[in-house]
Design a protein around this nucleic acid. Structure first.
Length: 245
DNA sequence: AATGGCCCCAACCGCCGTTTC
DNA sequence: AGAAACGGCGGTTGGGGCCAT
């Protein structure tokens, strides 16, 4: 990234228009080559910024809403085992991001612990994880017992649900479907879903591929979208403008 | 109504490991 | 094999919203 380009890059909060454009291009190009995606989309953002925005906010597989007690318990348990391995912990919480888990821990647990369990933390530091882990294990068992009774599902049902989520993971590149969680959407999320479904329809008849042979070089990738061919460096930008309108 | 303090979280930063050329 | 590009991760920051005074 040279100095002149750096100078023109936008920073700070994302505009709705930028979100919409990013969603369109991620749907078309996939979740990869973020620098390239940022360039061809016409977004005045770094690839890194685009990736972050998608991963932490726009990805439709993300779960919204407050953390459940189960999730809270898992975060606490895993943090006591692994420490600040936020992404590792987040992988055990489908639909949650490392950033979300990190923020949640910082705002909820740390304060709680500092206020209520100061002495226990001292002990815990002498004997890492053990005591608090067991304490929360008990909480989890108690919670599971209550909720299974309340909601009328038993362990096998939970396991089959988990299995479905695992299979979702396989088919969706590690991301479970939002439907797996019964999550309500915000109006803004619904709009994002709409954008995606529009693009998905476009893509269904688009034979999207990168031709790395014959006429294209590594720096000049030909992209076949339906019957149109674009050269990433020029024509695709024009194509992007037509999408945007 | 104005203001100051606090909380929350989206976004950024810098580093490091992996992949690509 | 080595350099450059890319992607992932954990830590930090800053701004907006809420609440008490």
């Amino acid at each position: 990234m040279d100095y002149k380009k750096e100078e023109t890059l936008r920073r700070g909060p994302w505009l709705e228009e930028e979100d919409e454009r990013l969603v369109k291009f991620v749907t078309l190009l996939g979740e990869r080559r973020w620098d390239s995606l940022a360039r061809v989309s016409g977004l005045k953002r770094s690839g890194k910024s685009c990736r972050l925005r998608w991963m932490n906010y726009l990805n439709p597989s993300l779960k919204r809403g407050p953390m459940s007690q189960e999730e809270e318990t898992i975060i606490f348990q895993l943090h006591s085992q692994w420490g600040n391995k936020w992404s590792k912990i987040a992988r055990r919480l489908p639909g949650r991001t490392d950033n979300e888990v990190k923020n949640y821990y910082r705002t909820h647990f740390r304060k709680k612990l500092e206020a209520q369990n100061y002495d226990k933390i001292i002990d815990w530091r002498k004997n890492p994880g053990e005591e608090l882990f067991h304490k929360y294990k008990e909480t989890e068992i108690a919670w599971t017992r209550t909720t299974t009774q309340e909601h009328g599902f038993d362990k096998p049902v939970k396991e089959s649900k988990q299995k479905n989520m695992e299979s979702d993971k396989e088919t969706n590149g590690g991301i479970c479907e939002r439907e797996s969680f019964g999550v309500m959407n915000s109006p803004y999320e619904n709009r994002i879903s709409d954008w995606i479904s529009e693009i998905s329809t476009d893509r269904s008849d688009a034979n999207f591929l990168e031709d790395r042979t014959s006429s294209s070089s590594e720096n000049n990738i030909n992209i076949n979208v339906g019957s149109w061919w674009f050269q990433e460096t020029r024509d695709f930008e024009e194509f992007s403008c037509s999408l945007w309108s």
